[in-house]
Design a protein around this nucleic acid. Structure first.
Length: 576
RNA sequence: GAUCUAGUAGCUCAGUCGGUAGAGCAAUACACUUUUAAUGUAUGGGUCCUGGGUUCGAGUCCCAGCUGGAUCACCA
């Protein structure tokens, strides 16, 4: 119930197709031997090969003109114009297939298969001259109509584009059909993952899978999603990271392991945060974080080239160049560079004073590490557009990283910042089991003091370290964040097919059966709808005499002569 | 969680001072044998997000809610 006018018309067309003996949803396959892109690229040079083509796709526009018509068919690769001529489709006396089926019963959005030959129209557009067509799927909902034109530079310009973000994310299938740039962004995302996988496989690292359901969550500082296993009757958490499992595999003797993993964090959402997101984590034995920096540069440069052909990527108003080598700053150097202040020798009190001077907001719970991080976040990160490595972080913030080989109070850690956001995080992994236990215990203290993101102590992980883990370099790259940069997308929702949303609420509407149950004839429903009465409850709140007046009035206005007016008695019956 | 902002036809959007709800595309009908944002003529299409309030009268003003978006906070 409550179908729009256009939906009703399409359902009617569906019935008429069936009446004509046409199955609108045939079961058998439709053989395709080319694609829109293939025709556009190769037809001009190999005309001979396109005398007998078969292609399938969605009708995206129609221009019907008497005995000949044009339509645009869209397949996975793009659009191709198709040309229908009545006497080619219907060589005999019966012109139903063209006059009725094509002209009246097909709509924008329907999926059809066509056979014919490729030619070039007088206006120079490569098109398919259709000799036969087949309905493959009738579309019952009108697609948002987006018209395309090309400007002088040949760029596609969209008119009346489907832009409402809420609808685009809720109905991504529609977004993908009508917004070609959306599809491109997702194709680039997949290419990005493939490019990395290829790089890592060529180095001989092993792609592995580790548990998503974990009895203890660890490897990062974040609140988890909690769930319950019935048979084991135990709490399980969706992983916030897979770091601790991958390191167990390094203990087990693998030299290099990586995993593309969906991780889950029960935190606020924003245009940079979705509750489930993707990371690739990599661990390589006998390496350190300097070595890992070289790997990151090399791999991301390759990704940029695989996606764009060059190392430069346009992001917002900037052009970001991933060409090696990237700038490297220690955190202290970066702060000195952007504020002119050397904080390397400062104690907590001096830092606090510096923050005040720089107007960096702080609170009393912040320790030394947190203060340094705060200065960096406020004064440095916003300036880092080109890919830059920041190295040597305060120890307090990195409970899984190895202490710096020469600088006390710091760890061997780096992040790559790009377009003002972190895109990766890496360290020389802490493999000293006694040190690791102490760090975990410090985290437990933080937890007791109310830090909801403090790490838990994982005894099994410590046991693994106690057997001995080789010196190891570890890396995590946020795939969503990197995809945003590589596809020039301002929101994470543009690189996740189905971003998390609150459920949509349907307006409360009673069904035909609900109305029938209290004795309302179905033919009266359009009248009630017109009167603004959509639910039985609503109806029952109205006086019988008012309905007795209003219904015949609206019946007359709608010219529903065939409908019999209800009697007052009948109406009183509904309201009982 | 806070602030700002939006929700009107299938889509994109207008709606003046509070007074009968509008346009383009899409749809329907007719015309048209190479159009291309096809064209011309005519027609139909609305829970103005929901619920309250003020008012003779609310798409419009007020309050509350729902669902987005932006910024911030939290967080990579």
């Amino acid at each position: 119930m409550q179908l729009s006018e256009q939906e009703l018309i399409r359902r009617q067309s569906l019935r008429e197709l069936i009446k004509l003996g046409i199955n609108p949803y045939p079961a058998e396959l439709f053989e395709v031997n080319t694609s829109a892109l293939d025709i556009h690229t190769h037809y001009p040079n190999q005309k001979i090969d396109y005398k007998d083509v078969s292609i399938a796709g969605r009708i995206m526009s129609r221009r019907v003109m008497g005995n000949a018509s044009f339509a645009e068919l869209q397949d996975e690769t793009g659009r191709i114009q198709v040309y229908f001529r009545r006497d080619d489709i219907c060589p005999g006396e019966d012109k139903t297939l063209y006059n009725t089926v094509f002209k009246k019963l097909l709509d924008i959005g329907d999926i059809i298969g066509v056979k014919g030959y490729v030619f070039t129209t007088q206006t120079g557009e490569i098109s398919i001259h259709v000799t036969s067509f087949k309905v493959l799927s009738k579309s019952l909902k009108p697609l948002p109509v987006v018209k395309e034109t090309k400007d002088e530079q040949g760029n596609v310009v969209l008119h009346d584009a489907f832009t409402d973000p809420e609808q685009r994310y809720r109905q991504r299938y529609v977004d993908l059909v009508v917004n070609p740039h959306v599809r491109d962004a997702f194709i680039k995302r997949t290419k990005l993952v493939n490019s990395m996988r290829e790089y890592l496989n060529n180095k001989g690292y092993l792609e592995v899978e580790t548990p998503i359901l974990q009895p203890l969550y660890g490897g990062a500082a974040a609140r988890p999603f909690k769930t319950h296993h019935n048979t084991l009757d135990m709490t399980l958490y969706l992983r916030i990271a897979n770091e601790l499992y991958l390191k167990r595999l390094i203990v087990g003797g693998f030299n290099g392991v990586y995993e593309f993993s969906k991780d889950f964090r029960n935190e606020g959402m924003s245009r940079f945060h979705n509750p489930e997101f993707t990371q690739v984590e990599l661990y390589v034995a006998y390496k350190d974080y300097y070595w890992m920096m070289d790997l990151v540069e090399e791999m991301i440069e390759k990704v940029a080239i695989d996606l764009h052909g060059i190392t430069e990527v346009k992001v917002g108003e900037h052009v970001i160049d991933f060409k090696r080598p990237w700038k490297r700053f220690t955190m202290y150097e970066a702060i000195q560079h952007f504020t002119g202040i050397d904080i390397s020798e400062m104690d907590e009190a001096a830092l606090r004073e510096t923050c005040k001077k720089l107007q960096v907001p702080v609170d009393n719970t912040m320790g030394k590490g947190k203060l340094i991080d705060q200065v960096f976040g406020e004064k440095c990160e916003p300036n880092l557009v080109q890919p830059t490595f920041i190295t040597d972080y305060p120890l307090e913030m990195s409970p899984l990283a190895k202490k710096h080989r020469s600088k006390p109070g710091l760890v061997e850690r780096f992040e790559a910042i790009c377009n003002r956001k972190e895109i990766c995080n890496s360290f020389s992994e802490l493999n000293d089991p006694l040190d690791q236990r102490e760090r975990f215990e410090e985290q437990l203290e933080l937890g007791k003091r109310g830090d909801e993101e403090a790490m838990t102590l994982d005894e099994d992980f410590l046991r693994a370290l106690e057997y001995g883990m080789p010196p190891t370099a570890g890396l995590g790259i946020g795939i969503d964040r990197l995809s945003m940069v590589m596809t020039n997308s301002p929101s994470i929702q543009d690189v996740i097919f189905f971003p998390q949303m609150k459920p949509e609420k349907q307006a409360e509407v009673s069904t035909e059966a609900d109305f029938a149950a209290i004795g309302v004839r179905a033919e009266l429903l359009p009248i009630l709808q017109k009167l603004g009465i959509h639910t039985v409850e609503q109806l029952k709140g109205i006086k019988a005499t008012k309905l007795f007046n209003d219904i015949p009035g609206m019946r007359k206005k709608l010219k529903l002569d065939a409908v019999q007016n209800p009697t007052l008695q009948e109406i009183e019956g509904w309201l009982k």
